[in-house]
Design a protein around this nucleic acid. Structure first.
Length: 589
DNA sequence: GCCGTTTTCGGCCCGACTGTTTTCAGTCG
């Protein structure tokens, strides 16, 4: 039983408590808090429990510790089982319908006794839901729409999909002279790997006439990518865009813009301690501003930018990517936030493929793509021979590629440099796919798993640890193999992997492909704390794939990385020396 | 259920929007 598993059990308790009319909302919140507290605790949970080290963790009181211990020792929590037993499964399913919460669920259940979502759909169609006191036609229609939406989508979208939709509309809106400031907010601005919807905030001049807002909203709701309008007013409008993502636009007076943007950027988890801090300082925050409370009256604290809000709370500016309540507020108070890596820090590409294996472009074309984008080096990493499905390179292919690299490097001397790399398969037993004498010829080696995903967690971890122990391994590629919204990835003990990599001085990449974003930012954070270097790999199979670095930068920032934590921000000379020293140190161990 | 430089009891973030009502409950972020 690991932390994530126990945390999800605590979350389930919170949800089930929400469905119990007599339960206290504060008890419920205590379970939510405990779940999050547990995830961010350091160390192996079994060991923490055995050594009684959970005591003193904020958010984990005596009851919560008892629940966690029970989960670890018995694999279950009796209280959770009790709640499950007394809660019909359909109530949990109904929680996923937008606009439907515990109160409505209980009312529908008590009055109509539905046992499945299909039955719920039927009683809506039979006009029975609208007749429940406090309900009406619109609520019934909204439930039907929500059910249809649930059927169509798993209700989350990949970052890149949502980002592209948001950019289309943002660029269009930016042409309106009425708009003073315009920003994407929400989880998209925080660079979450998947998002539920898109939030956008625009401002108009404080003295702008009502027509200005109306014009903006009409323009917004008639964009070509809008497939349906779910709400239209002068302060907020909601639409669904082509890929099925819901999108909200809020229009506020420019003086309110920083507060509104901040509010809708979230996260909710970040805002809770921030508001508590404000309260302790005699202030209050809402989406219209920051107010000083004196003698019962609220006095606006002028904020021209988001930065001013944090400054008024005696905090360094907290970048949106960090607003997840994972210690950023304390760090900001103590001036200990890192200077986050930026796209402009990136000097070269590590992890790209060519026509030698499964890439679509030649080595030379990939080099040209890098030069056009202002990069000064490319670490080329085609597949090794075990990846037969991807045209993995034989030793002979490798030597042929090295010859071409030497030739192009000679041509481009002083302007651009290609590093000889390989994405070498980690075989089932943890050995690498080339013998040492071949591996020694590469400037660097990315070791990745592409087969045997279904080993037991123990075996998979052992396999990965063996690959890390190989002195020629420079970087571990896409460490969990997950495909966002597609597959979970192989199960292995990532904390053990990070510890081993830290001990041996091996890097773990952030695979920047938007369907992977692997390693996960929560793990990046842990890797940084252990002192790992984390390169960004676009895993490009075509020229445009080089641009995926952008997604990786977002994840690196969410993992609190600075430029110095990311080797491909180094100059090519420094990077080559970094890999050389890494190998020398490991061979001498 | 958790927590404490005003507190071991009495708080716990806050406001808008929607849909239903005619003054408000529920949901959301």
């Amino acid at each position: 039983m690991d932390k994530a598993q126990v945390a999800s059990m605590l979350e389930e308790i919170a949800t089930l408590l929400a469905l119990k009319p007599e339960a206290s909302v504060f008890e419920l919140r205590a379970y939510e808090n405990a779940a999050r507290a547990l995830v961010s605790v350091d160390g192996d949970l079994n060991q923490l429990v055995a050594e009684k080290k959970l005591k003193g963790t904020p958010g984990l009181g005596p009851t919560m510790i008892k629940r966690v211990e029970e989960a670890v020792q018995n694999g279950k929590i009796a209280f959770l089982d009790e709640l499950r037993a007394e809660t019909p499964a359909v109530k949990l399913e109904m929680m996923r319908i937008p606009g439907v919460g515990p109160k409505k669920i209980n009312a529908i259940y008590d009055q109509l006794h539905v046992t499945t979502l299909a039955e719920l759909e039927q009683v809506c169609k039979d006009d029975k839901v609208a007749k429940i006191p406090g309900f009406g036609k619109k609520t019934q229609e909204k439930i039907l729409q929500g059910l249809a939406f649930l059927k169509q989508h798993a209700d989350r979208f990949r970052f890149d999909v949502a980002f592209a939709e948001a950019e289309r509309i943002r660029t269009a809106l930016a042409t309106l002279p009425e708009i003073v400031r315009l920003e994407v907010a929400g989880s998209l601005r925080r660079r979450r790997e998947t998002v539920k919807d898109i939030d956008m905030v625009a401002s108009v001049d404080d003295n702008a006439p009502e027509e200005a807002r109306e014009k903006i909203m009409s323009f917004f709701t008639t964009q070509p990518t809008v497939i349906s309008i779910t709400g239209k007013g002068t302060t907020k409008s909601s639409v669904v865009v082509a890929s099925g993502i819901a999108m909200d636009l809020r229009v506020v007076s420019d003086s309110q813009f920083p507060s509104t943007l901040h509010h809708f950027t979230g996260s909710r988890e970040h805002h809770i301690p921030l508001r508590r801090r404000a309260q302790n300082m005699g202030m209050t925050i809402n989406d219209y501003g920051l107010f000083k409370i004196s003698e019962g009256k609220e006095e606006l604290v002028p904020c021209h930018e988001e930065r001013d809000i944090y400054a008024a709370l005696k905090l360094d500016y907290i970048a949106p990517e960090l607003r997840e309540d994972t210690g950023e507020i304390d760090a900001a108070a103590q001036h200990k936030l890192p200077k986050l890596v930026e796209q402009s820090d990136m000097r070269g590409i590590l992890h790209a493929h060519t026509t030698y294996s499964d890439g679509q472009k030649t080595l030379r074309e990939m080099v040209e793509g890098c030069i056009e984008r202002g990069y000064s080096y490319l670490g080329i990493t085609d597949h090794s021979k075990a990846a037969a499905y991807a045209g993995g390179l034989s030793e002979e292919d490798v030597r042929r590629q090295w010859a071409e690299i030497d030739q192009i490097n000679a041509e481009l001397q002083g302007r651009f440099h290609i590093l000889k790399g390989i994405e070498c398969d980690i075989l089932k037993d943890g050995a690498l796919d080339f013998p040492d004498e071949v591996l020694a010829g590469f400037d660097f080696v990315i070791a990745s798993i592409h087969s045997n995903f279904n080993l037991s967690p123990e075996e998979q971890t052992k396999r990965m640890l063996k690959a890390i122990a190989n002195p020629y391994t420079s970087i571990i590629g896409h460490p969990t193999g997950r495909i966002l919204l597609g597959r979970a990835g192989y199960t292995l003990d990532m904390e053990a992997v990070i510890d081993a990599a830290a001990e041996q001085g091996v890097c773990i990449e952030i695979n920047a492909h938007p369907s992977r974003l692997d390693m996960d930012w929560r793990l990046v954070r842990k890797a940084r704390e252990k002192g790992l270097k984390v390169p960004l790999g676009p895993d490009a199979h075509a020229i445009e794939g080089l641009d995926d670095v952008f997604y990786g930068v977002g994840i690196a920032r969410k993992g609190w990385l600075s430029a110095d934590d990311v080797p491909n921000t180094y100059t090519s000379e420094r990077l080559i020396e970094f890999f050389r020293a890494q190998r020398e140190r490991r061979l001498s161990q």
